[in-house]
């Protein structure tokens, strides 16, 4: 019975890791699409002349922005997104290792339960 309880607790924890994992993966996907968009903006900006007129959408209105300012905004965003993606990658790896560990624990307990079941 004690084993049953332990197994239950372990599988709950395992489930928790899985949920955490999927939310992390979703977050990474979102960041990646943002990165993609920012990259294409960066590429577009790099082809522009220095006196090009750039406007930024703030709420419902367009505000004129300095070219260099706009460029540095996008560069900054890309840097931030890159950092975030790295951070999330690390978390994903951690969770993966943890859930893998839990899985082996679960399998061990299941194996032990089966054995005690057959001997009894």
């Amino acid at each position: 019975m004690a084993q049953q309880k332990q197994l239950q607790a372990l599988s709950d924890e395992y489930q928790g890791f899985q949920t955490e994992m999927s939310s992390l993966v979703t977050a990474r996907q979102k960041l990646e699409s943002q990165q993609q968009e920012n990259k294409s903006v960066q590429k577009e900006f790099s082809t522009l002349a220095d006196d090009a007129n750039i406007y930024k959408l703030v709420g419902p209105v367009l505000l004129k922005q300095d070219t260099t300012e706009a460029k540095s905004t996008v560069d900054g965003r890309l840097e931030y997104i890159g950092g975030e993606i790295k951070r999330i990658e690390v978390s994903i790896k951690e969770i993966q290792e943890k859930s893998e560990g839990k899985r082996t624990e679960i399998m061990q307990i299941q194996g032990a339960m089966q054995q005690s079941g057959t001997t009894a």
Binding site: N38, S40, V41, F45, N53, I54, K56, L57, R77
Partner: peptide, 8 residues
């Protein structure tokens, strides 16, 4: 051009 930027 994306991410809220408009270019003339």
């Amino acid at each position: 051009v994306g991410t809220g930027f408009f270019v003339e």
